[in-house]
Design a protein around this nucleic acid. Structure first.
Lengths: 332, 332
DNA sequence: CTGAAAGCGCTAACAG
DNA sequence: CTGTTAGCGCTTTCAG
């Protein structure tokens, strides 16, 4: 910048004014500065700027999602990026991998970089470590999962209602013995979905039985678990898979046994090709695009000074019937 | 940091030494510093540090991929993140959307943030704007697509060979009228795949005809284009779809006409559920995980001072037979 | 082993 | 309209 100032024969502050489009610079002066900028191929150092800037803004955001590689999380990532782009905010995305240590490390890394705000998917229990971040004044918005014991903005799907809807759908098709396949129960959404599922099955009366297999993590272990169940003495007639990767594992297990037209399946969360599988996979659809967009709205509102009470945005889910969930129970 | 120094009754330099694990600090002094750090919940400001640091490193990377939302690109993103994590490097990911302006803007944004290195997927022609970046000494590694007129490290799949393999596979199954559906031809991989496809069809002799439909971008326009072709007077008997989203569109068009067991299909690039649709989708599989990992290796090597000649890593592709590509041509 | 002073590139505050 | 001075939080340099 000194070089630019020297070449344009102005002070450094004038250069600063020009490149930041501040007023009070004569047109010809500005022109000389721009010429120098181009001649030297100068790019401001945003980091250096934020060091001195009154607001202290770094124009960065920290985003913690299950994995940048998971389609659901990637859609959130994209929505956040789209909201950040016009504000010239860059986003650091980190994969959580449902690992509490990674969560802690990622947030610390974000703080060392002085991000202006955080959008976080957390493991449930230990959100206490975030208190110091909140104290510092860095806004936090939670997505997908609700944190324990922290009063902050949150954007999530209605997991309980969605899971209940799935259960009801299967019950309505005559199923009485239904298994719910869920993530590890440390994860808040896994608990919510299990609870919604069980509540609905219970409501249906004593004739109905809800089995819960939890602790699942990826398609492979889901496939193993469901295979075992389906080949047992008293197999379920319907499956509720409570997460996208678990649904994939469930489909594999069911198809491997040739049961795709006998065992009913409803999954939580949609995936790109679920409509093309045979039969089409019935799902409770969430809107990750919307979740990401709303979460970004909230952080930016907070960054811009919104000090209103914490908002809880619970987005509705939608049942998408494609065939797998409409298989009726065998009349035994 | 001043506060920490005051509380520990040491100079700021000693605090700096302790938190950066530099030698020459007495154990009891260090202990006092750590106590103060904890008491004040102090986190270093990495940005401020990099401003003064001799190396000038910011410990950040810029990653430009087609879209953080595309499964292929997301896998690359994840691999880069995994390589960056142990080095305490954070990555800024941006979506290109095959838009030259976004490319330019993203790279400029990366430079203003003084990233230590760049991993880029580019549109083909206009890579000249990168010269100043290279001059600045910021290492660049290209992924997926090869840039025009820049001598830099590149990691990509063997697109020509993969496309040729797809064509050969379809020819071997008796197809003589094959359509290749490709991206916009400004994109280097689209050209490579088209060329590999056409070369192989030509090699098969005058009886074989390769039709190319290019300029496709997403499942929707692909579906329209292929639908039109399949309902024309002289429809192809086989389809080569040269990209993952295009393959999805092709599957939809074929299924919508009920032709999934009549029209052969080979796609370039795999997707999670391609093995579960009926029939399974035969693909030329790339290894995005590997591409990302190798690209990260290269940037970090360059950042660490490797000044060797530019490396071209061309990773092999693999034909995965699942059914859709093994449909034989009708004996007309 | 420790600290004081200088300065990284920029913007704030103020003086011309 | 323009420039000067100070200082953001840190690391470097160098002197104790």
């Amino acid at each position: 910048m000194k070089d630019v100032a020297a070449l344009a024969r102005v002070g450094t502050k004038t250069v600063s004014r020009v490149i930041n489009f501040e007023p009070n610079v004569a047109a010809p002066t500005a022109e000389r500065v721009w010429d120098a900028v181009r001649a030297l191929d100068y790019h401001v150092d945003l980091q250096a700027g934020s060091l001195r800037r009154a607001s202290g803004r770094t124009h960065t955001l920290g985003l913690l999602i299950s994995s940048v590689d998971n389609p659901f999380a990637a859609a959130i990532n994209r929505a956040v990026e789209d909201a950040a782009l016009p504000r010239e905010v860059a986003v650091f995305a980190s994969s959580l991998d449902d690992d509490a240590e990674r969560e802690d490390a990622a947030v610390r890394a974000f703080m060392r970089r002085r991000v202006d705000g955080l959008i976080l998917t957390t493991m449930s229990r230990n959100t206490g470590y975030l208190l110091s971040t909140i104290e510092r004044g860095t806004p936090i918005v939670f997505v997908d999962r609700e944190p324990a014991g922290i009063d902050a903005d949150i954007v999530t799907s209605d997991n309980r209602a969605g899971a209940a809807r799935a259960a009801r759908h299967l019950l309505e098709h005559g199923h009485r013995r239904i298994v719910a396949l869920t993530d590890r129960l440390e994860i808040q959404t896994a608990r919510e979905r299990r609870d919604g599922f069980l509540a609905e099955v219970d409501r249906a009366g004593a004739a109905s039985e809800g089995i819960v297999v939890s602790g699942l993590h990826d398609p492979a272990d889901t496939e193993r678990a469901l295979h075992e169940l389906l080949t047992s003495d008293d197999p379920p007639t319907a499956v509720f898979s409570a997460q996208n990767l678990i649904t994939v594992g469930a489909i594999r297990a069911i198809r491997a046994l040739g049961l795709q037209h006998r065992i009913a399946l409803v999954g939580f969360d949609d995936m790109p090709l679920f409509d093309l599988v045979e039969p089409g996979v019935t799902v409770i659809r969430q809107d990750p695009q919307q979740i990401g967009a709303r979460a970004a709205d909230r952080v930016f509102a907070r960054i811009d000074g919104d000090t209103g009470p914490a908002q809880r945005l619970i987005l509705p889910t939608e049942l998408v019937e494609r065939g797998s969930g409409e298989i009726v129970a065998p009349s035994s």
